[in-house]
C-alpha cells in the first residue's frame, strides 16, 4: 500500500517536473520559430509578419520570468528579430505592397 503510494507520488512528481520543463521550453521553441524566419523576412506577407511579431512579443514576455543570464541574452536576440519584422512591416501596406521611399 505504502509502496503504491510512493509510486503514485513519484509519477505525479515526474509529471509535474515534465510540465515545468515543457513550460520553460515553450519560449525556446517559439523563439526558434520567430528568429528562424528572419532570413526570408523580406518575402513574407504583412499578415505573416504580424503573426511573427505577436509570437515574438509573447517570447519577450515569457523571458521576463527567466533568470538574469538567460534574460539578457535572449531578450536582445528576440528584440533584433522583432525590429527586423517591424521595419519590413512598416514599409509595407497591409495589402503587401511596398511603400515608395519617403522623399
Amino acid at each position: 500500500m505504502f509502496r503504491n503510494g510512493v509510486t503514485v507520488l513519484s509519477l505525479l512528481a515526474m509529471l509535474a517536473s515534465s510540465e515545468v520543463v515543457s513550460a520553460s521550453d515553450d519560449w525556446r521553441t517559439e523563439l526558434e520559430d520567430v528568429c528562424g524566419n528572419t532570413s526570408e523576412a523580406a518575402v513574407l506577407s504583412h499578415m505573416e509578419l504580424q503573426k511573427l511579431i505577436a509570437k515574438g512579443e509573447r517570447v519577450s514576455k515569457a523571458l521576463e520570468s527567466e533568470c538574469e543570464a538567460v534574460r539578457i541574452v535572449y531578450q536582445k536576440r528576440v528584440q533584433k528579430c522583432l525590429d527586423l519584422y517591424r521595419n519590413i512591416a512598416d514599409t509595407m501596406q497591409p495589402d503587401g505592397k511596398v511603400q515608395p521611399p519617403a522623399q
Binding site: 528572419t38 533584433k80 528579430c81 525590429d83 527586423l84 521595419n87 514599409t91 511596398v98 511603400q99 519617403a102
Partner: peptide, 17 residues
C-alpha cells in the same frame, strides 16, 4: 552577418530610407 546585424539597426530595410 545575416540580415539582423545591419537591419534595421544600421540601415532601414526600405531602399532609399
Amino acid at each position: 552577418g545575416g540580415c539582423k546585424l545591419c537591419h534595421p539597426g544600421l540601415f532601414s530595410i526600405n531602399k532609399g530610407r
